[in-house]
Nucleic acid binder design. Structure first.
Lengths: 102, 102
DNA sequence: AGTTCTGTGTAGAACATACTACACAGCACT
DNA sequence: AGTGCTGTGTAGTATGTTCTACACAGAACT
């Protein structure tokens, strides 16, 4: 039985408008990471989480940057404060704010 | 009476190892923002908050990037959730976590 | 055996980033 | 009137970013 993958380097590269050899290098970390726009297209093509792919590339999503930039002192302090907090503590925080405990 | 400022373009530039003309352009937004390292030196020389200067330059401090990159899903969700939360709500959250309400 | 896929290596282009070096005009003071 | 500051304009450079174009070798299939 013949299985033709839909996720060959070549097919994915063509789908998102990249050269196959470049995508190959991206996968093997043989080139510096692509631009945010390219990472987003890649994430969509692979049905991966773009925040995670961006993180792998050492980047932070531009919308998050915008949020932080509007209140840099507030967000910088918060992020540093939560650096070592366990996941569940952070999640609790998110839930509280979402539930409107202002 | 003669007042010689310690914060002329030239003196500050020399202190942090920059060309005065370049610093002049930075101040007037006549050039793209300098590197994070330079912004940090500038913040120190001017006794300004580096998180705020970085934000003015459209950047996010590399230590914050590191924190986000380690748990991208968690922090991305949290930051987006807190985007429109008022300052005091965010501050309350920070205090709770700091006080060990884990 | 020949075609068609597969990933990948090499070279280089186009543009952005992050500056330096130097010159020059205006004002302040002597 | 000359000296020494002030900011700033112009030009150029080195390096990094983000890719393209093309070629090539190995495996798979007919």
């Amino acid at each position: 039985m013949q299985i033709k993958s839909e996720y060959t380097v070549r097919k994915v590269a063509c789908r998102i408008g990249l050269e196959p050899s470049y995508l190959s290098k991206i996968e093997r970390d043989a080139t510096p990471p692509p631009s945010e726009a390219t990472i987003r297209r890649l994430a969509e093509a692979l049905q991966e989480d773009h925040d995670i792919l961006l993180a792998m590339a050492g980047k932070v999503s531009s919308d998050l940057r915008q949020i932080i930039m509007k209140r840099p002192r507030l967000f910088a302090d918060m992020i540093r404060e939560l650096k070592d907090a366990p996941d569940h503590a952070v999640l609790r925080v998110v839930r509280e704010v979402r539930d409107g405990h202002w």
